[in-house]
Simulated assay, not measured.
Amino acid sequence: MRRLVLPIAALVALSGCKEQKAEAPPPVRPVLTTTVALEEARTFGPFAGTVQPRYESQLGFRIGGRIVARDVFVGDQVAKGTRLAALDPTVQQFALVRARADVADAQAQVKNASAAEGRQRILFENNSAVTQAQLDGAVANRDTADARLAQAKAALQKATDELGYATLTAGFDGVVTAWSAEVGQVVPPGQVVVTMARPDVREAVVDIPDDLIGEMPKDIEFTVRLQEVPEVTARARVREIGPLAEASTRTRRVRMSLIDPPDGFRLGNTVTVAFERPVSPRFPVPSTALVEDDGHAAVWVVAPDGRTINRREVTILEREEGRAFVGTGLKAGEKVAVAGVHGFTEGQAVRLPETDL
């Protein structure tokens, strides 16, 4: 009897071990998640840029010479008519003296020719020994003297102007942005010496990737923020889009006219440019979070206690590269699995990482 009881007891114990092994809970699986957030506006940008003047002039002397004076420096505010630089005027002063002497000589010649022509005319009218040819010669001499006087006066005006060209003045109220020559340097006519900008008309200049130019909304106002003080903002409209992309960066230069910018928008400030437009409420999630079967989309949502995961049906409003926008089925703040979504089971135990993606 004892021999029969022992095998039976062993079988009962063995079957109990198998049941315990079958009922062991599945292992806790680590899950990579992201926290969803409600999006009610789409942002185009932001793009970094700078504040630049719309009007900028490169100024130079209209004559050549050696620079002897530089009166302003980069960053100086100058008023219209302010002297910026000057050339050595010695040569122009000598030319002016000579031109004045030529005018005086021509005036004397005109006076002499006019007197001679008057005497010849009186004698001719009194039937004296003056022929018509002699009178015509006197008239021609007077006309020649008048022409030479006009020529001398034009040369005097030119010499006066060239003396004035030895001084470079500001043609408008502006700010000096660059210098291209120094005192003692000999410059030819037209060489750029100083660059001036008009600070009253300012623009935001940004470089936007070529593939995003087509997505840029038309006829809208962008928001421009100072990077160092984001609270200071201004509105801007697109004025010009570069026709060609830069070869190395594949970006196109976009110039935006600032609309009534505050004083904080100074030339050279770094800014960010962006545009927000309202959209229907949505939750952006990575494309890897979606599980799609027979045209239906779902995601795996981690329970609030962070211990289990459950499948939930969602509706997709829009897709773009690497992302999908969920319309219904999610709530802000929920955690969604973004990797290994085809290996989960309903109610499976999971372990969250220390940080989300």
Results as ranks from 00 to 15, higher is better:
A166W: 04
K153N: 14
V229H: 09
K153T: 12
D161E: 08
T233G: 01
F222E: 10
V175P: 03
D260R: 13
Q227D: 13
Q191S: 14
D173R: 12
G264W: 01
L168N: 05
D211F: 08
Y165A: 03
T251S: 14
Y165W: 12
V238R: 02
E203Q: 12
V192T: 11
R142P: 08
P262K: 13
I208N: 12
V193F: 04
V254H: 07
L258P: 00
N141C: 04
Q157V: 14
L267D: 02
A145E: 09
P230D: 04
V201K: 15
L149A: 06
D211R: 14
G190K: 11
R225P: 07
D210Q: 12
L212M: 14
D219Q: 13
E162Q: 13
T167W: 07
I208Y: 03
L244V: 06
V193K: 05
S257H: 09
T144L: 11
A245C: 01
E228N: 03
R252I: 01
D161M: 15
L226W: 14
V139T: 09
G137V: 07
V224T: 08
I220H: 04
W179V: 09
R237P: 00
R239S: 14
M256P: 05
P230C: 11
S257V: 13
V194N: 03
A150E: 05
P189S: 04
V194P: 02
A236L: 07
P230S: 05
A247K: 06
F172R: 04
A170L: 06
A181W: 12
T233D: 01
A197N: 02
A197M: 01
P261K: 05
R250E: 09
V192G: 06
R239Y: 06
A150C: 03
D146V: 13
P217D: 06
D210E: 15
T195V: 13
M216H: 13
